[in-house]
Structure formats: C-alpha cells, structure tokens
Design a protein around this nucleic acid. Structure first.
Lengths: 145, 145
DNA sequence: ATGACTGCAAAGGGTTTGCATTGAA
DNA sequence: TTCAATGCAAACCCTTTGCAGTCAT
C-alpha cells in the first residue's frame, strides 16, 4: 500500500494516515488513466466494501490539495484525477467523453503572453482539445453505411 | 427584440420564432459578460415572469447549436454563454469563479502541433487560464491584515 | 393541422455537507 | 486525549426529461 506523504504541511491541517486515504491514492495510481471520482470509488469498493462515497470524494480532494495527485476539472463532465507527472494537455472525445493525454510540448510561458491589463494575476492554464477518438471515429464512419 | 436567424438549416429541424427564444437571445446580448444559464434565466424572468427554467436552458442549447451564441463549458462550474465574436481564450478567477476574456492572440494552428499518433481527430481547443481577479486579489491582501 | 415549443414538475448526475462516531497521533 | 477522518443520509447545484397542452407556421 502506497505511503502517504504530505508535501505542503505549512498551510494544511495535520493529516492522518488512514486506510481509506491510502486506498484512494492507490486507486488513482492503479487506474492511471484519468479515472473519474466515481471510477475511483468503484475500484476502492472492491477492496474495502464499506467505504463511503463521501470519504472517497473527500480524500481525492485532500490529496489533490496536497499535491499528491492532480485534479482535472472536465468541462461538462465528471472530475477526473491523475497521478503526478510532467504538466501536459488533454483531448476529450466529444462522443464518449474519454480523456487522453496529448503529445505536445507544455508551454510554461503561456501565461506571460497574456496582456495583464486588468490586473489579473494569472497562475496557471489548462488546454483541452476536443475531437473524436479513434474508436468513436470508426463507429461514426461505420454508421454512415 | 432581436430577430432570430437560423444559420444551419440543413442539419437542424425547422424552428419557430417564439417570444421565449428571442428573449433568451436578447438576454445573452444584454448581459454580454459570459452569463451563466441561470443568470440568463434570472434576466429573462424580469421581462417574462412565467417563462420556465427548462425553456431557457433548452433555448440556450438550441441557439448554441445553431451558432447564434457560443457555449463555454466551464470546468467545475455552470455553463456560460457568449455572443458570437472572434475566437478567444478565458481566465477564470479561482475565488469568485468569474470568467474574463484574455487579451492574447488566438492560436489557430495549435491542434496541428499535436502529434496525432493515436488517430485522434482533433477539431478544436479551449484554453482556460486560472488566477485571481483584481477584486479578489485585493480582498485577499486586505484579509491578511 | 402539424409538430416544434412551452410550462411544470420530477428525476438525473455529480458533488458536498451536517452530524454523531471512530480512531490515528 | 484530541480532533482529523469516517460513514451515512440528506442536501445541494446544475441540468435534463417526460408529458400534456399550446401556438407559430
């Protein structure tokens, strides 16, 4: 079972190493493909049947705030989580909603290209491409006879 | 009252010019600052008290599909709508959730920079910056004594 | 006359919250 | 001993849907 580490102890309340939290962290690593909160829940249920959904959601949130995992807020869809890795962008299939990583250099300097005329302090950015995944693209062509 | 025009008649069912639809279109133009669905609803209620929420939501969807307005799916927040304009990017204030336009060139060629090794057909992209708006930034500094 | 559109209310998906209890430190 | 974390259920926000009645064409 993955050991829990608190990277940002300064600003966050003391945390405890509970079985539930470790299982949630494990699940995100085990599922690795941007699981949604409920996919994490379903996975954890398999190992710890009495865990409640609220605990899973709370722990995903706590782990994301601590920097143990990354939260991906999906426009118009369920929140997904990812393991820590190099910053990168995502594509979302319009049809099935699946999220994939995109092979493209990360633009660290993008925020600096924004003319901050309004006094907005820009901290980060996300790029979400949209399109058709190979599976759905195929299905669509097939259904057109 | 704004006149309703159907730009994509080929693929969509015949549509009718109802008072409700015109009011919804008007509201998006009147509010102009990326109103959420419910902000549009609240606005329209002022002029047509008996309109139902479902009608407003349905019309926003219809108008977006017809290309009369633009839908902005906000990660982790309510859907917003915008008038038609040049494609552009947005910043979202982490604290108040308000969306602002960003003054930065639109990168038409961005999808072409993605290595389409997986057979993904990329059609579009959205960039959402995140940060602190001037108002919330000020409030935060003030609260730190 | 037809069927797109409306209003209403109910249901839906995803997430959060209140609260009494438990358990890691 | 303490208070962060848990489990449960209910509440929450935003959105969609079913359906009978309406009205633009």
């Amino acid at each position: 079972m993955r050991t829990y580490k608190n990277k940002n102890e300064q600003s966050l309340p003391a945390s405890r190493n509970t079985i539930q939290r470790a299982l949630v962290l494990d699940a995100v690593y085990a599922l690795h493909d941007h699981p949604t909160s409920s996919e994490v829940y379903e996975f954890v249920i398999g190992q710890h049947p009495h865990i409640s959904q609220a605990t899973v959601y709370r722990n995903l949130d706590v782990l994301a705030h601590k920097g143990e995992i990354v939260r991906i807020d999906v426009p118009g869809g369920a929140t997904r989580y990812d393991v820590i890795s190099e910053p990168h962008y995502h594509v979302r299939c319009k049809v099935c909603g699946m999220i994939y990583d995109v092979d493209m250099p990360y633009m660290d300097d993008l925020p600096s290209q924004v003319k901050a005329d309004k006094g907005f302090e820009i901290e980060g950015h996300q790029i979400m491409f949209s399109g058709l995944c190979p599976t759905c693209s195929e299905a669509q062509h097939a259904s057109q006879n």
